[in-house]
Write a protein that binds this DNA or RNA. Structure first.
Length: 587
DNA sequence: GCCGTTTTCGGCCCGACTGTTTTCAGTCG
């Protein structure tokens, strides 16, 4: 079961409790929603937590939920949930995926019209609304009837909460709106917040905060956005719109003197905020987007910066990437937050595919050495590594492969002789074959400074076999880095199965590094595995896997994943100087 | 059902907005 399916199950249980007895089950409902939120936000599979007996490390999962989830993974169902969901019409649950449908509304409609089939319930509701039979129900009216029809239509188009954007795409959507907002004389500051500011690997909707002394004017300006599809809601301090392309943009406004509280509130995550507010409440401080209220004196205070806001709760400022309620509040309270890595710490990119005609097994790059070095210079790098895919094994003899790689090496030497500013490592990205052997032989590997290894074929092996394959591939003394270690592609495929316990153990013993691949649809390692690797002092390297020079600027996304995994400079080997990195390659 | 800078029992974030309402329920972030 995927994280999404599990979260859906927990939300369904919460919805069932809401229908059965909202008051009696109030805190279970909250707990189930919180756990669902946490599971949805995970960037590794919950199944892997289960496999390593770490379910209760997920915030919001305690003793009871742990045992229920274990039952789910073992048997595919949970007896207690079968009971909880019994007596509740199954047809209400698909409706909950549609924005504006909650448990009460879904239940009332399904019950009222005696709808039984979950597979057709959305069609059924649509038909009933079109016939005008919803408006007459108590609690409903003409407006809510037409809203239902529109919500269903938008849901079908895949807008709203169903599809999530990759980070660069989300940034683009946000930038367009920010450019627009900053043209308004009433906008003093405008910042993208929410999961985009936390650099979550995928982003659902765009959240923007504005500092202004005239919120009304800004709101009126906001809803005149040229790429507006429709206004979802508009109040006195906030508004939501659907932009063309089906992406929701939420706006919140505060005066500049209260902007710090707004930044904090709207950056989230939800579970971070809930935990932070509970923490503050113990100090008689009640937090909101307006500021901090002392519950004893009743005195409210505004904060213009986030740093002051956190300080007022007795905490050091927590970087947005860490605000997922995975222990950052406790660490901040103890003054133990690690100093996480920054983009400027990176001294090189070791995973570059040039256009050198090496006749590779997979894609060749489109730019030559010099063109890529020019970008490296722009990025202030000390060194780079060229790591084209190994020459195709099926098309060439080992002798031919040796010749191709040697020619590439000579071409690099030639560049080096008239290039003083940036050093170059002669690497390759070598396939690990299904039997664990590397795709090219020792004689050729010996000509390299080292090699990156990775899986590019036969993804569907058993977990133990895949683990053996990877470890065997990494065992070669020239193999130093495992590229895109999980093989996941965001919004496409989950990645192959690996026994991380064994991989970590092997890496630490044999001084191998795991790559954090910055490619926006990979972002692989996922942040939770980065966090795990950091805890075990395993070295990582942040690379772009660039096949074109402009892609080298994507390095920031890998750095952001490292930050989400609490990695410091010392965890990442390409923060080392040229000489230090050279030494590390030889160990 | 979770969780611990008052606690292993007894608490549990805070507010905006909309539609259908005569004062509030439902949904959302």
């Amino acid at each position: 079961m995927s994280n999404k399916e599990i979260a859906k199950l927990l939300r369904n249980v919460a919805a069932a409790y809401t229908i059965k007895d909202e008051k009696k089950f109030y805190f279970q409902i909250v707990a189930y929603q919180k756990a669902a939120e946490a599971i949805e936000g995970l960037t590794s599979e919950l199944k892997d937590y289960y496999a390593e007996d770490k379910l209760d490390e997920v915030p919001g999962i305690g003793v009871t939920l742990k045992s229920r989830l274990e039952e789910l993974f073992k048997k595919g169902k949970v007896a207690h949930y079968e009971w909880a969901l019994s007596g509740i019409p199954q047809a209400m649950f698909p409706l909950l995926d549609i924005p504006s449908f909650g448990p009460k509304k879904a239940y009332k409609l399904v019950k009222e019209f005696n709808l039984k089939n979950p597979d057709t319930v959305i069609d059924d509701i649509e038909k009933i609304a079109k016939e005008g039979r919803i408006a007459s129900l108590s609690g409903f009216g003409e407006k809510s009837q037409s809203d239902i029809l529109r919500a269903i239509a938008e849901f079908r188009k895949g807008s709203g909460k169903t599809t999530r954007m990759t980070l660069p795409f989300a940034s683009e959507v946000a930038e367009k709106m920010l450019d627009y907002l900053r043209k308004s004389p009433d906008v003093i500051r405008a910042e993208p917040l929410g999961s985009l500011r936390r650099s979550s690997p995928t982003v659902g909707d765009i959240d923007i905060a504005v500092a202004s002394k005239n919120p009304k004017a800004v709101l009126n300006y906001f809803i005149k956005y040229p790429y507006l599809d429709r206004i979802i809601e508009k109040g006195s301090v906030s508004s939501s719109i659907l932009a063309s392309g089906g992406k929701q943009i939420d706006l919140l406004i505060q005066p500049p003197e209260g902007f710090g509280a707004l930044l904090q509130h709207f950056t989230g995550s939800k579970n971070h905020n809930v935990h932070l507010r509970e923490f503050a409440l113990k100090k008689s401080l009640s937090l909101s987007e307006y500021g901090i209220k002392n519950t004893k004196t009743g005195k409210s205070t505004q904060y213009s910066s986030e740093e002051e806001f956190y300080k007022a709760i007795g905490l050091e400022w927590i970087p947005p990437e860490m605000r997922e309620d995975t222990g950052e509040i406790e660490s901040a309270a103890e003054g133990n937050l690690p100093k996480i890595i920054e983009l400027s710490d990176i001294k090189g990119d070791l995973h570059l595919h040039s256009s050198f005609p090496i006749e590779p097994s997979h894609d060749l790059g489109v730019n030559n050495f010099k063109e890529m070095l020019a970008v490296a210079k722009d990025l202030n790098y000390e060194y780079v590594g060229f790591a084209e895919h190994n020459p195709s094994v099926s098309k060439h003899t080992p002798e031919k492969i040796y010749g191709l790689v040697s020619r590439r090496n000579e071409a690099i030497e030639h560049i080096l002789s008239d290039n003083k500013s940036i050093r170059i490592f002669k690497l390759l990205e070598t396939d690990i074959l299904p039997n664990g052997q590397l795709a090219i032989d020792n004689k050729t590997l010996e000509t390299l400074d080292g090699t990156i290894v990775s899986i590019h074929s036969v993804f569907n092996m058993r977990k133990d076999e895949m683990t053996k394959r990877v470890i065997e591939g990494l065992s070669h003394k020239k193999a130093k880095i495992l590229a895109h270690p999980t093989g996941r592609m965001l919004n496409e495929r989950p990645g192959y199965e690996l026994d991380w316990e064994k991989i970590f153990e092997f890496c630490i013993k044999n001084n191998k590094a795991l790559e954090i691949n910055s490619w926006p649809t990979r972002l692989d390692l996922p942040d939770s595995l980065i966090r795990e690797a950091v805890n075990r002092k395993i070295k990582m390297v942040i690379d772009t896997d660039s096949h074109a020079k402009d892609q080298m600027y994507l390095q920031k996304y890998g750095v952001e994943m490292a930050r989400r995994g609490w990695a410091t400079k010392s965890d990442i080997v390409n923060t080392l100087s040229y000489n230090e990195f050279r030494e590390w390659l030889k160990i």
